[in-house]
Design a protein around this nucleic acid. Structure first.
Length: 282
DNA sequence: ATGGCTACTCCTAGTAGA
């Protein structure tokens, strides 16, 4: 009874979290496009030590499974579920908790597909780690592939899950959904990452029954997750919000905080993407 | 100044990312 009190509950949870690998009170789930896990490993490990997330969905690991840095991540207490590929793409879920029913790819992907998806159930939540195609330029073959990839992801949700169950789709979705997610909407309008058909596909995915977690907590413009390496884009505040955490209805009330860790875009050898971290209450 | 970088590869030039 005392543990439910406004004062005692946080204290209790703080004490528990200091002595257990798994926080008793909240679960931290993060997504981060690391743009090569081999180059980013020193930053990733120090970030894991600092933030202590329970689950991390990584994109663009760019490494075959045999060369994945299992040992370093296991030393920090993470099990690794990977769907790797040489040079391009590659996704991984790191988790302190058990991962049930692991699955690579979309059900209608061919065996030699680009490795853009991996999913597992963690603590009763179906977690889908996704790296959407970039799309090249509007009208290109890669653009068509991107639009169709979104259609297939929505079809997968339709055929395999119910929005009444706890489900989360997160990752680099390579779409900035609204004007407030883009540093210069006029300049970006109609361009890749911000074209109307891409935004429609993103909204169609959400219409299955997913909330944009960051927008549950923050309404302002200027919240970006990616900045071009060129032109001092980060320094100039020229970014886009293209990395997302989308959650089904049962998770909405549990969503306590959602933050972009933009400090990770600073300093030596950053990824061009910043992590997004969500805290879920139990 | 309308482009500026980074990471990859059967690696020093070409491709892709976003």
């Amino acid at each position: 009874m005392g543990y439910q009190s406004r004062v005692l509950r946080p204290l209790y949870c703080w004490l528990i979290s200091r002595h257990a690998r798994v926080a008793a009170d909240t679960m931290k789930i993060a997504t981060w496009n690391v743009n090569s896990i081999r180059v980013r490993l020193p930053r990733l490990t120090s970030w894991l030590r600092r933030v202590e997330p329970d689950v991390v969905c990584l994109q663009e690991t760019k490494v075959v499974d045999d060369n994945f840095p299992f040992a370093e991540l296991q030393d920090l207490g993470y099990k690794c579920l990977i769907n790797g590929q040489k040079t391009y793409n590659g996704v991984a879920i790191l988790s302190r908790l058990e991962m049930i029913d692991p699955l690579p790819n979309l059900p209608d992907d061919s065996p030699d597909v680009e490795r853009r998806l991996v999913s597992a159930t963690i603590d009763g939540i179906r977690i889908i780690d996704a790296y959407a195609p970039n799309g090249g330029f509007v009208g290109s073959e890669r653009y068509s592939y991107k639009l169709d990839w979104f259609r297939r992801l929505r079809a997968y949700l339709d055929s395999s899950f119910s929005p009444e169950h706890p489900l989360l789709v997160c990752g680099d979705l390579n779409v900035a959904p609204e004007d407030r997610d883009v540093w210069d909407p006029a300049k970006w309008r109609g361009k890749i990452l911000f074209s109307e058909p891409e935004k429609e596909r993103f909204q169609h995915l959400r219409a299955w029954g997913l909330e944009d977690a960051l927008r549950l907590r923050h309404q302002e413009s200027g919240l970006y997750t990616w900045w071009d390496y060129r032109a001092g884009a980060f320094r100039r505040g020229q970014g886009l919000r293209i990395d997302h955490v989308l959650i089904s209805k049962p998770l909405v009330d549990r969503c306590a905080t959602v933050e972009i860790d933009r400090d990770e875009r600073k300093g030596d050898k950053p990824s061009d993407h910043a992590p997004v971290v969500m805290s879920l209450e139990s």
